[in-house]
């Protein structure tokens, strides 16, 4: 009887796995493979040539530049915000937490439009900026701002639970040992959250490079100047340059795969550290006392 039960549940289990596997294959794996198949449709040389187009190179450069600006800023903002939320009690804390989540809940297009309203020629600061010949929209600053907004929550969201779990006793201990705030941060706080921080940075970077909606609104799509990689993919595709579009797309897909790999690697490393700790505690407890 019991055996039959297990037989049945095994059937159900395999059934479910098959369904999930089919779905994953159809909707995730197949498109991913297709990206690379299309990208290499004209062979390795065709692929490289597609990537060597000056406008495509410019898009890659722009994307890297934006990520290089946005990720460090968001690390600083994210650490500061997570620190404030996790270590201090203050009025308006729930509001701050909600605000940190705002970019997650808002459509990226709306986020882009917000910057149009602020900095567009008809916008609040438009005239002031025009008089001083400062270009924000349809230029690097606007793209960076929109990306900054959209990717803001990643680092903070990763750090808040880690910091809350650590508590503030270790920092207080550092203070009683003579460390100032800065020393405490570098020597105690940062090392204790390094995995969470790294994870946040990886996710933030992936999104910063892949963001389409918000950037699309503020970039102006000036070929060779304000097209980021995702925008370039769209443009090439609309120009019927399938190989070019998929070549750039393959780079983005590669980035996604690398990110996933990093993430899995980090999680695995943490798990291993945890298991090592468990074993050590067990072996320390057994013979002692």
């Amino acid at each position: 009887m019991a055996g039959e039960g297990i037989q049945e549940s095994r059937l159900v289990r395999w059934g479910l796995i098959a369904v999930a596997g089919t779905f994953l294959g159809l909707f995730l794996l197949l498109p991913l493979v297709n990206v690379f198949v299309q990208a290499f449709a004209e062979g390795w040389s065709g692929y490289l040539e597609a990537l060597r187009q000056p406008d495509t190179l410019a898009a890659i450069r722009l994307t890297l530049t934006v990520a290089a600006i946005v990720v460090p800023l968001n690390v600083v903002f994210g650490v500061a915000a997570a620190w404030a939320v996790a270590k201090f009690e203050f009025r308006g804390k729930p509001l701050l937490i909600t605000l940190i989540d705002l970019p997650f809940s808002i459509s990226p297009v709306v986020a882009g439009l917000v910057f149009m309203v602020l900095f567009g020629t008809q916008g609040y600061f438009g005239e002031w900026l025009l008089e001083r010949d400062i270009k924000i929209l349809f230029a690097l600053p606007g793209i960076a701002l929109a990306t900054l907004f959209v990717t803001f929550p990643f680092v903070a969201r990763e750090l808040i639970p880690v910091m809350q779990a650590t508590g503030s006793e270790q920092e207080q201990a550092a203070l009683t040992l003579g460390a100032n705030g800065w020393q405490t941060f570098w020597r105690v706080t940062l090392p204790s959250v390094k995995w969470g921080l790294l994870y946040g940075i990886i996710l933030c970077n992936a999104r910063a490079m892949g963001e389409f909606g918000a950037v699309s609104v503020v970039s102006g799509h000036i070929t060779g100047l304000t097209d980021t990689m995702p925008l370039r993919v769209e443009k090439l595709y609309q120009e019927y340059d399938a190989t070019g579009a998929f070549a750039v797309a393959s780079l983005l897909a590669l980035l996604a795969l690398l990110t996933l790999g990093f993430k899995t690697c980090l999680e695995w490393q943490q798990q291993r550290a945890y298991e090592r700790a468990q074993r050590a505690v067990k072996s320390a407890d057994a013979p002692s006392s």
């Binding site: 650590t166 006793e169 270790q170 207080q172 201990a173 550092a174 105690v188 090392p191 204790s192 390094k194």
Partner: peptide
């Protein structure tokens, strides 16, 4: 709870 530095 001693607040030892876990990473040291």
């Amino acid at each position: 709870n001693y607040a030892l530095f876990k990473n040291m």
